[in-house]
Computed example of a mutant assay.
Amino acid sequence: MNAIEPTRPPLQSVPQRAVPRTQRQQRRHPNRGTLVETTAKLTVNIVLSSAAISALAQLLPYHMSQQAKLSDIQEEVKRTEKRVNRLSDNFRRYFDPQQAKSVMQEQSHRVDPSQRQVVLMDSSTTEEEELKMAN
């Protein structure tokens, strides 16, 4: 039990192996791949965003001119609809058999002989002036 233990030789330092250069760089920058990928994505997104913004800036004046043209056309359509409605009403009236007699009188300025002509006079006129007008 009390045996003598053999002595150990003194520990010698193990010569370090030469680590390849790429492994040393990876140890210094372990997230370099992620950094490059993120930078590339960010650059592409910035380029695409700037292209989209410039395209919108060029389309804005065109859009405004188209809106102005559209409003002009809508106003013209409203005026035309009013005119069409008026002409349609006149057309229906002119071709209505019940109103044919009144339309003919309007168009020819003749009066039906069975109708009495009404002359409006001012109440301030005297009888003498009425006689002069009658003659």
Rank of each mutant, 00 (worst) to 15 (best):
I73W: 07
V44K: 03
L70K: 05
P61M: 11
E81G: 00
V47E: 07
Q25R: 15
V77I: 15
S54Y: 08
Q26H: 13
N90V: 12
R79D: 01
L87H: 08
K82T: 06
S88K: 06
L87P: 01
P15I: 14
R32N: 14
L70Y: 05
Q25W: 13
S50P: 01
A18M: 13
R83P: 05
R27K: 14
N31E: 09
A40R: 01
T39A: 03
A51G: 11
Q12C: 00
N31V: 05
S88D: 05
R21F: 12
Y94V: 13
V14D: 04
Y94I: 13
Y62N: 01
R21K: 09
I46D: 13
V47F: 06
T39F: 00
N45G: 03
Q25S: 12
V84Q: 09
D72T: 13
T34L: 07
S65W: 06
A40E: 01
L87N: 12
L60S: 02
R93C: 06
L56T: 04
Q23T: 09
E75I: 12
R17Q: 15
N90G: 03
A51M: 10
L35T: 08
V19D: 07
L42C: 10
I53Q: 08
S50C: 09
V36A: 12
A18K: 15
S71A: 10
Y62K: 03
P30L: 13
S71R: 11
Q66E: 08
A40V: 00
G33E: 14
T22K: 12
S54M: 15
Q58L: 08
E75W: 09
Y94R: 13
A18P: 15
K41V: 04
V47A: 11
P61T: 07
T80Y: 06
V14W: 03
E81F: 00
A52Q: 09
N85E: 11
